[in-house]
Amino acid sequence: MVELRHVANKVIHGLEVRTDNAAEMSPDKGKIPALWQAFDEAVPVDYKNGERVYGVYSDYESDHTGEFTVLAGFDGQSLPPDVNLKQRVIPAAKYLVFSHKGNMPQIAIDAWTEIWEYFSNPDSEYKRVYSTDFEYYPSADAIEVHIAVL
């Protein structure tokens, strides 16, 4: 399902790495799986009290071929004191949201495949701006990928 949403500013804290899509396509060079593992081990997310997990993509060098920064984080106020977390602000903007439900990591793969297909079509209604994009995990079996658009 794809839907257009306007999102307000949101502060996310987490761990981050710099990478590119070429590296992420290689199992031995990809940094994102290790980033999520480190986040899961270091940050206790209080799901029962409403905290949620986000993946924030920012600082794009160019388009899908350039480097970008990924932050694996959460929206909690109670930050673990022994973990050096970075802060990113998801800016208020217009986002095209791609939603999937099922088993991880397949739903993330399916969402990003749909995104790449959508934006590779020159006739797509919306154009990607490569500013800040984010993944939102409303539950263990759901993902919403928000792509900033014009």
Rank of each mutant, 00 (worst) to 15 (best):
M1F: 05
R5G: 06
H6V: 15
V7Q: 04
A8N: 13
N9Y: 15
I12M: 11
H13L: 03
H13K: 09
H13D: 03
L15D: 01
L15E: 02
E16T: 12
V17D: 00
R18Y: 14
R18P: 08
N21T: 03
A22H: 12
A22G: 12
A23F: 10
E24L: 06
M25I: 06
P27T: 10
D28P: 15
D28S: 15
G30P: 11
K31C: 07
P33S: 09
P33C: 09
F39G: 12
D40V: 11
P44V: 11
P44G: 11
P44S: 15
V45C: 04
D46P: 01
K48A: 15
K48M: 12
K48S: 14
N49A: 12
G50I: 10
E51S: 08
V53T: 15
G55V: 07
G55P: 02
G55F: 00
V56N: 04
V56T: 09
V56S: 07
V56C: 08
Y57A: 00
Y57K: 06
D59V: 06
Y60K: 01
Y60E: 00
Y60A: 00
S62T: 15
D63K: 06
H64G: 11
T65R: 06
T65M: 04
E67R: 13
E67L: 03
F68N: 00
V70Y: 12
L71Y: 03
A72N: 07
F74Q: 04
G76M: 02
G76S: 00
Q77L: 14
Q77D: 14
S78Y: 10
S78H: 14
L79F: 08
P80S: 03
P81T: 13
P81Y: 11
D82W: 11
V83M: 05
N84Q: 09
L85P: 08
L85A: 01
K86T: 09
R88C: 06
V89H: 00
I90P: 07
P91W: 11
P91C: 05
A92E: 12
F98I: 02
F98R: 01
F98L: 00
F98Q: 00
S99P: 09
G102H: 07
M104L: 14
Q106F: 06
I107W: 00
I109C: 03
T113L: 04
E114H: 03
I115M: 04
I115V: 15
W116H: 04
W116T: 02
E117W: 01
Y118L: 05
Y118K: 03
F119E: 03
D123G: 07
S124W: 00
K127H: 07
V129H: 02
V129L: 07
Y130I: 03
S131R: 07
S131T: 06
T132D: 01
Y137D: 05
P138L: 07
P138N: 08
S139C: 08
D141H: 11
A142V: 13
I143V: 15
E144F: 11
V145H: 01
H146E: 03
A148G: 04
V149Q: 04
L150D: 13
L150C: 09
